Deep mutational scan, measured.
Amino acid sequence: RKEMTAACTPRRRIINLTSVLSLQEEINEQGHEVLREMLHNHSFVGCVNPQWALAQHQTKLYLLNTTKLSEELFYQILIYDFANFGVLRLSEPAPLFDLAMLALDSPESGWTEEDGPKEGLAEYIVEFLKKKAEMLADYFSLEIDEEGNLIGLPLLIDNYVPPLEGLPIFILRLATEVNWDEEKECFESLSKECAMFYSIRKQYISEESTLSGQQSEVPGSIPNSWKWTVEHIVYKALRSHILPPKHFTEDGNILQLANLPDLYKVFERC
């Protein structure tokens, strides 16, 4: 597991931080080997919608929660590849102030007048994250320049770009939802926020969305749709870069829909 690298990086740093090793061990302890084997050997059937997909393993048909699986995938990559990410360069710098204002204007932020003026909160978020810029760049390849612009994001899987519609809320939550006081809790909560931002979430995906850094293989055609990215990038990574937690067998994120021999018997009677 320590050699797990989802995106190509030129050289690998050895990380011996106790906090990170502890988080890696927790993933191992909570892992479910049968689910790992199923995901490793599954045959992708198709997307139901951005949140759900169908896959077959041996004779069984499964309904998989793409949102939760991708979130767990990105969390584990962030923990196992800690401080070893490439950088996704933004085509132009994104001012943190503008991103924070967009987030505060969104109902998702939960902002009320009692929280104070949005401009003041946005300025605080910019200054707060600028103070964390060195650590964010060093460990997470999340790059913020001296003017308070976001200029780079971590490359977690080759050819995958997170849904940038979720970027404003991500920046807001970096400042408000991460435990910045304790090292282990900081790395864990920061990785979880980043994983949620990178995950496939239906509120940020339309039929026209593209999450891939590449064009489709047909010359002159439109960019790959999110469905292509889910199948050929995300579920491909799920084959080798995730140890599913045991609770996925109990919380409805992986559901067995049918045993195909039983279905064949039904059709034979028709």
Rank of each mutant, 00 (worst) to 15 (best):
R1D: 13
R1Q: 12
K2L: 11
K2A: 10
E3C: 09
E3K: 04
E3H: 07
M4S: 11
M4T: 07
M4R: 05
T5L: 04
A6M: 05
A6E: 06
A7T: 06
A7S: 08
A7P: 05
C8Q: 12
C8K: 11
C8G: 13
R11W: 13
R11N: 08
R11C: 07
R12G: 12
R12M: 11
R13Y: 07
R13T: 06
I14D: 11
I15H: 11
I15E: 04
I15K: 04
L17G: 04
T18K: 07
T18R: 12
S19N: 05
S19A: 07
V20C: 04
V20W: 03
L21F: 10
L21P: 00
L21A: 05
S22N: 14
S22Q: 10
S22I: 15
L23K: 02
L23V: 03
Q24P: 01
E26P: 02
I27M: 03
I27A: 05
I27W: 00
I27V: 13
I27H: 01
N28S: 09
E29G: 10
E29Q: 09
E29D: 13
E29L: 12
Q30M: 09
Q30Y: 08
G31D: 13
G31R: 12
H32C: 14
H32W: 07
H32F: 09
H32P: 01
E33Q: 13
V34I: 11
L35N: 06
R36C: 08
R36M: 08
R36W: 08
M38P: 00
H40M: 11
H40G: 10
N41M: 13
H42L: 11
H42F: 10
S43T: 10
S43C: 11
S43H: 15
F44P: 02
F44H: 02
V45S: 03
G46E: 12
G46H: 15
G46S: 15
C47A: 14
N49P: 00
P50H: 14
P50K: 09
P50G: 07
W52I: 14
W52H: 04
A53M: 00
A53E: 00
L54F: 04
A55Y: 01
A55P: 01
Q56R: 15
H57S: 13
Q58H: 09
T59M: 14
T59K: 11
K60N: 10
K60R: 12
K60M: 15
L63W: 05
L63K: 04
N65S: 11
K68V: 11
E71Q: 13
E71I: 03
E72C: 13
Y75T: 02
Q76C: 01
Q76G: 00
I77W: 01
I77M: 04
I79V: 11
I79R: 01
I79K: 00
Y80M: 14
Y80S: 07
A83P: 04
N84D: 05
N84S: 05
N84E: 04
F85G: 00
G86R: 05
G86V: 05
V87Q: 07
V87G: 10
V87M: 12
V87S: 15
L88Y: 10
L88I: 12
L88E: 05
R89T: 15
R89V: 14
L90A: 03
S91H: 12
E92G: 10
P93D: 04
A94F: 15
A94N: 15
A94E: 15
P95H: 11
L96V: 13
F97C: 10
F97R: 14
F97H: 12
D98P: 11
D98W: 07
L99P: 02
L99N: 11
L99Q: 13
L99Y: 12
A103L: 02
L104R: 02
L104C: 07
D105P: 03
D105F: 06
S106I: 15
S106P: 04
S106Q: 11
P107D: 13
P107K: 09
E108L: 11
E108M: 12
E108Q: 11
S109A: 14
S109I: 13
S109V: 11
W111S: 05
E113T: 08
E113Y: 13
E113D: 10
E114K: 09
P117I: 09
P117K: 12
K118P: 11
E119V: 13
E119Y: 09
G120W: 12
G120D: 09
G120T: 14
L121P: 06
L121E: 09
E123P: 04
E123H: 09
E123C: 11
E123D: 11
Y124C: 13
V126A: 11
F128T: 10
F128N: 06
K130F: 13
K130D: 11
K130R: 12
K131G: 13
K131H: 07
K131P: 10
K131R: 10
M135F: 05
M135T: 06
L136R: 01
D138A: 05
Y139R: 03
Y139N: 05
F140Q: 01
F140S: 03
F140N: 01
S141Q: 09
L142H: 01
E143A: 07
I144R: 01
I144S: 00
I144N: 01
D145I: 02
D145F: 00
D145K: 00
E146F: 10
E146M: 09
E147Q: 12
G148D: 12
N149A: 11
L150F: 06
L150V: 11
L150Q: 01
G152V: 03
G152F: 03
G152A: 08
L153R: 00
P154C: 00
L155E: 12
L155A: 09
D158T: 13
D158Y: 07
N159I: 03
N159S: 14
N159R: 10
Y160R: 00
V161C: 14
P162R: 01
P162S: 02
P163Y: 09
L164Y: 07
L164A: 07
L164S: 07
E165M: 09
E165R: 10
G166E: 03
G166R: 03
G166P: 04
G166N: 04
L167F: 00
P168E: 03
I169E: 14
I169Q: 14
F170W: 03
I171N: 02
L172D: 02
L172E: 04
L174H: 00
L174A: 04
L174V: 06
A175V: 14
E177K: 06
E177N: 07
V178H: 00
V178N: 00
V178R: 01
N179F: 08
N179Y: 07
D181W: 15
D181M: 15
E182P: 05
E182D: 11
E182W: 08
E182F: 14
E183A: 03
E185W: 06
C186K: 04
F187N: 01
F187V: 07
S189T: 12
S189Y: 05
S191P: 01
S191T: 09
E193K: 04
E193H: 06
C194H: 05
C194I: 14
C194E: 01
M196N: 08
F197L: 11
F197E: 01
F197W: 02
F197N: 01
Y198V: 01
S199N: 00
S199C: 05
I200C: 06
I200T: 04
I200Y: 06
I200L: 08
R201S: 03
R201L: 02
R201G: 04
Y204K: 03
Y204F: 11
Y204L: 07
Y204C: 05
Y204S: 03
I205A: 05
T210G: 08
L211G: 13
L211Y: 13
L211K: 07
L211W: 14
S212L: 14
S212R: 15
G213A: 14
Q214Y: 08
Q214S: 10
Q214K: 08
S216G: 15
S216A: 13
E217D: 13
V218N: 13
G220R: 15
S221V: 15
S221R: 12
S221I: 14
I222S: 14
I222G: 12
P223S: 15
P223W: 14
P223Q: 13
N224Y: 15
N224G: 14
W226F: 03
K227M: 05
K227V: 05
W228L: 06
W228D: 07
W228P: 02
V230C: 07
E231G: 03
H232F: 08
I233K: 08
I233P: 00
V234M: 05
V234G: 00
Y235H: 03
Y235D: 01
K236I: 02
A237N: 08
A237G: 06
A237D: 02
A237L: 06
A237R: 05
L238R: 00
R239H: 03
S240H: 14
S240K: 15
I242V: 11
P244F: 01
P245R: 06
K246H: 14
H247C: 13
H247D: 13
T249G: 15
E250G: 07
E250F: 07
D251N: 08
G252F: 04
N253T: 11
I254M: 10
I254Y: 03
L255G: 04
Q256S: 10
Q256R: 12
Q256Y: 10
L260H: 11
L260N: 10
P261H: 07
P261M: 06
D262S: 07
D262R: 12
Y264I: 10
Y264C: 12
K265E: 14
V266N: 15
V266D: 15
V266P: 15
R269F: 04
C270G: 15
C270R: 15
C270M: 12
